Simulated scan of single mutants.
Amino acid sequence: MNVSLKEIQAIDVHAHPYLANTEPYTPEEFVRKLSLSVIPNQIPPHYKRVKKQPFPGSNMWVQILIQRLAKKFSCEPTLESVVKERNIRAIDFRKYTRDLFSDAKLSGVIADFGYPQPLLSKEDYADLCGARIWEIHRIEPVMVQLSQDCQNFAEFREKYRANLAGALKQDGIVGLKSIIAYRSGLEIAPKDEKLAADEYEKFKENSYAKAKKLRDYCLHVAMEECTKSDKVMHIHTGIGDGEVVLQKASPSFLIDMLRDEKYENTKVHLVHGGYPWIEEAAFIVSILPNVYMDLSLQNPFSGHGVKRILSQVFEFAPFDKVMYGSDAFTVPEMNWIGVHLFKECFEDVLNSWIDSDYMDSETAQAIGEMVLYRNFENVYRKHL
């Protein structure tokens, strides 16, 4: 008997909210919405395409999305046809979004409301998609806002810790998140309040300043508050958009901090599973009992690579340490294809394990359900 995940619910442990698009998208606008790049693709003025040639800026994941949407819409598998049909259905954007979530059996999302800015409403997003929404509280917007409000580091220090502690007491907030990989990298120095204070004025003048000692200090405070509240520290690892400090984005740079005795009981969630350094993330979660990883961003944005990644991750990662995620951030089609592509690829991997006599079908089915939602329930069980 083969594994089947089609009817299994999914909990997405990392995605972002979005608003309904008020006007129909052109094909070019839709492709831009699907891109991780913060720099728009430049299309030469006299660029020529032949029939069926992918639209400029499209990559494999976009191609897979077009192919799957064309089947769902019963239309020609071209960007232009799919966007035309999509725009008709998305006139009632709430119904369209809920239909996609329901079709994917996507029942819940841990949403990072730190992007986009200004903040969107949790209640509005929950109403839009019809799924249960949990929230993580991103520390960088707090740092920026308080740096403008506080005259000195002492005031900033007290208000910053109070903000994080207060947020973690709120219902529905399951943890904190840092995108320090985008600002100064993941090589975190020991906590040093004096050095952090020395960089405060620099950060106050320019919130994009590297200010590494201050940023490291703020991450340590966030780790401490998550430890106190028994909630989860989310840390962006690996690639993202073009602003990431790529040379310091591997999760391996976090290892000294994660091994610190004072954090031995701190739950840490490696967002994006360190992609493309997935082997490092898999090894880290295999040796540190309270560190977990998700497969967001690499799923669905690596396209056909999702199958390879799933196989690689489980070369080292324990089955109970990996969670489903998408990093969907602009349109509900990302949430939808994320689940379907993941299930499709994971079924192939799990069934290959059965064929190789590594396990029986019941064990493989259980592993699929663990990654799709059961691991989430176990990691976040106190806050559901």
Rank of each mutant, 00 (worst) to 15 (best):
V174S: 06
A15V: 11
E225Q: 07
C226A: 04
K202W: 14
D12T: 12
G240S: 02
K159Q: 04
V13M: 15
H14Y: 04
Y292K: 07
A104H: 01
M223I: 07
E80W: 01
H46C: 14
Y18Q: 01
A167V: 03
M60H: 15
R161W: 04
V371W: 11
S207Y: 05
D149T: 08
V268N: 07
P116K: 02
G185M: 00
K321W: 00
F156T: 00
E85D: 08
N299M: 09
A281W: 01
T97Q: 11
M359C: 09
E243A: 12
E261D: 13
F153D: 00
V322E: 08
M223Y: 00
W336L: 02
Y275D: 11
M60G: 15
R86C: 08
L5N: 01
I180G: 04
G240V: 04
Q53H: 09
G185A: 03
S81N: 08
D99A: 07
M257N: 06
P141I: 01
E369D: 03
T97W: 00
A281K: 00
Y182D: 06
R32M: 08
L258Q: 06
V109C: 10
G238R: 06
L270P: 01
W353C: 04
F55T: 02
H340I: 11
H234S: 11
I367L: 15
A317C: 05
V271Q: 02
K105M: 03
A111D: 13
P318V: 10
R49Q: 09
R98V: 08
L295M: 15
I91N: 13
L5I: 07
P17W: 00
F203G: 03
I287L: 14
A196R: 06
E80F: 01
F329H: 12
A104K: 02
R132P: 12
A282K: 07
G108S: 15
R381M: 10
S361M: 12
L19G: 13
S356D: 05
S107W: 07
N265I: 12
T266C: 09
I8G: 11
V144D: 11
D357Q: 15
V285L: 02
M359Q: 06
G175S: 09
M223C: 03
I188Y: 01
N163C: 15
L120C: 07
H269V: 08
E225N: 00
I239A: 13
V268Q: 04
K213N: 15
E201Q: 13
S352N: 01
A10E: 00
V271E: 04
T330H: 09
I287C: 13
G305D: 08
N351P: 08
E344R: 12
D171R: 14
G305M: 10
Q170V: 05
F319E: 13
I354H: 05
F301S: 08
K262M: 15
Q312L: 14
E344I: 12
D241Y: 05
Q145W: 04
P27C: 02
N41A: 14
V245D: 01
V245G: 08
S184C: 10
Y200C: 04
L146Y: 00
E280D: 13
P276M: 05
S107G: 12
F30C: 10
M359E: 02
Y275C: 10
E28A: 08
